[in-house]
Simulated assay, not measured.
Amino acid sequence: MRVLNYLELEGPLERSGIGAAADHQRRALLGECGRSEGTDIDVVTDPWGDSLRSVAKRLRHERSPTVEYDIAHCNAIGPGSLVVARDAMRTDTPLVLHAHVTREDFRDSFRWSNALSGPLGGYLKRFYSQADLVLCPSEQTRRHLEAYPVSAPIEPITNGVDHRSLEGVVSRRENARDRFDLHGLVAFAVGNVFERKGLGTFCRLAQRTPYSFVWFGPYDRGPQASPTVRRLTANPPPDVRFTGWIEDKRDAFAAGDVFVFPTHAENQGIAVLEAMACGKPVVLRDLPVFREFYTDGVDCLLCSSEDEFCAALEILAANPDRRRELGENARKTAAEHSLERVRTRLLEVYERLIT
């Protein structure tokens, strides 16, 4: 089976959740998730071949701009994905569109994202409805898509967590703490700095508690960045640090003690699963998508207000045993989202659509 697993703008999206999810799919399909046996899957990531000349040649002789494949799986929503989708429909080839983008999680991401979220919803309705099957990271995302409404069938599949990429976190702790000059309890977040991800709450919690707060991840201060992101990353409150991009994410998970994620909207949240896989206690905003995967008080603490976030941090700071208990339970939960599980679900979907 030859699978086209396509992520347009792969370079710019490399540091995003979409890029991580596509990478997880490819690693899973290629057997890079701990399987001892080989794989009969041939994964192609570039639908255009090696050059524009090859695209022109195919158009002259085959009337198709893309390379040959048995099933198309697109992870983005731009013009390249639209061309692949139309070509798959024209050739009656199974088409899977992965809904990593919704108008709900697009809001409060960039300067103009709220104004654009309405038109985006109309586009997404038409774009996703072309598919033979829409995959999405959660039941919550499926409910959003069904409300647009998207007419194609929709099924959830976890984005997964790459456990191998997190190996050795414990051994990196001392060096990571020294590198970032961290002491005491460190509340931390990992990923792109967006207003939607609870940036304002994160900074206010730092002002209300005696702990250090560190956000490991890239941020933008250009014209497309929201005013809140530009203001807070340029002049953060005391005890708040924004590191920017770090080459090895293991240093972030090694240095931090409690993963704090007061996000307002998520399709799943890969960084949460990564923190859990590292055995970190996680404190999350009480959202339906998190209740779908996690259990409050067992593998996480869910908070509805800043007062509850502060209380949760106070409890965890005073009780190392509770931190370890939550972390170990979180590790077990993350094991349920392995790349092996992603592989099994993808193969089942592909084979069902092809036959």
Rank of each mutant, 00 (worst) to 15 (best):
G80M: 02
G19E: 05
I77F: 11
G34Q: 00
S226K: 07
E292C: 13
S171Q: 14
A176Q: 04
V169F: 05
L313M: 14
G78M: 10
P223T: 09
P288Y: 13
T344S: 14
S36E: 06
L145P: 03
S51E: 02
D286P: 01
R90S: 15
A187F: 00
R241S: 13
L95R: 02
D257P: 01
N5T: 10
H73M: 02
R26M: 02
L302M: 15
C74Q: 02
G198H: 07
V349C: 08
E62G: 03
P79W: 12
R250W: 00
A275Y: 09
L52W: 08
S212T: 15
L145T: 04
P236N: 09
E195M: 11
D239N: 15
C303A: 15
V349H: 13
L326V: 11
R285A: 14
P227Q: 08
P262H: 12
D46W: 01
P94S: 14
R53P: 00
F188C: 04
V283T: 08
W112A: 14
V186E: 07
E14F: 08
V170G: 06
P94M: 12
T233C: 08
L232N: 03
R58T: 13
A335L: 15
V289C: 06
Y350K: 00
F110L: 14
A147H: 12
T158G: 08
F309Q: 04
G160C: 12
R53N: 01
H183A: 13
E336T: 12
T233S: 08
P262R: 06
H264M: 11
I246N: 07
D239G: 10
G78H: 10
L182I: 11
V186K: 05
P137I: 04
Y211K: 11
R208F: 02
S305Q: 10
L52I: 05
Y69L: 05
F202H: 00
G222T: 06
D239S: 14
V190H: 01
R343E: 13
L185T: 12
E328D: 13
E174R: 14
F309W: 10
E247G: 01
F293I: 14
S36D: 04
R241A: 14
D162N: 13
R173K: 13
M276R: 01
L82R: 13
F127R: 05
R2H: 03
L29E: 03
E348Q: 15
F253W: 07
L133A: 00
M1K: 03
F110W: 15
A277P: 08
